[in-house]
């Protein structure tokens, strides 16, 4: 069996306490002693539900729910964004939608996350990747599945991949993920 860690994890939570020690008499000596006390720390909960709009990027998410991967393109220059963008960075023109579901795609770079933000800790280890597409100028951040995190190597850069879509859409960018094309 593996050795137990030497330090227990620290967590919030504990007893509810009503009243804490304080001098019975507030004479000058007792008041001066207050400067030597450790601070009181309390827990404050903060929870919000936002109504977030995908706004002009909404068709991209609608595409995912229907197993189509869309991209944006400047109609004049053809500069193409794998991650949606309503207006072109160089011309300021409104972009148009194109379908890149079947474009050849490769891993541009990746990492294996063994830790993460609190929301994603239960999913560790997971693989984040930036994917490049043929004829597309920018990249797409995604999850890479179908690989062994313990086998991570620079050989994964350049790996041909293809998109897969969640059958039950969550209307999140993770409705699409990538797997080795094979």
């Amino acid at each position: 069996m593996a050795k137990l860690p030497s330090k227990r994890p620290e967590t919030l939570g504990g007893y509810i306490v009503h009243g804490i020690p304080f001098p019975v008499e507030t004479d000058p000596e007792a008041l001066a002693f207050l400067k030597r006390l450790a601070p009181i720390q309390i827990e404050q909960e903060y929870k919000i539900t936002y109504l977030h709009s995908y706004a002009q990027d909404s068709p991209w998410f609608a595409g995912l729910t229907n197993k189509h991967l869309l991209a944006n393109r400047d109609p004049k220059t053809g500069y193409t964004y794998a991650t949606p963008r309503g207006h072109d960075m160089y011309t300021g023109q409104e972009t148009e939608w194109i379908d890149i579901t079947d474009r050849p795609a490769k891993v541009h770079t990746f990492t294996v996350c063994y830790f993460g933000s609190e929301e994603f800790l239960p999913e560790t280890p997971f693989v984040l990747a930036l994917v490049e597409f043929e004829g597309v100028n920018t990249l797409l951040l995604t999850r890479l599945m179908g690989v062994d995190p313990a086998e991570a190597s620079l050989d994964w850069v350049g790996m041909e991949v293809k998109p897969r879509f969640l059958r039950n859409s969550k209307l999140k960018p993770t409705d699409v993920y990538f797997v080795p094309a094979e």
Binding site: Y54, T111, C113, F115, S117, L128, P173
Partner: peptide
């Protein structure tokens, strides 16, 4: 909209850059 929900984690972002 596009980055955080995929697995938002700055160490992961920098790791991709150095990879």
């Amino acid at each position: 909209s596009f980055d955080y929900p995929v697995g938002g984690f700055y160490s992961g972002y920098y790791a991709m850059m150095v990879t």
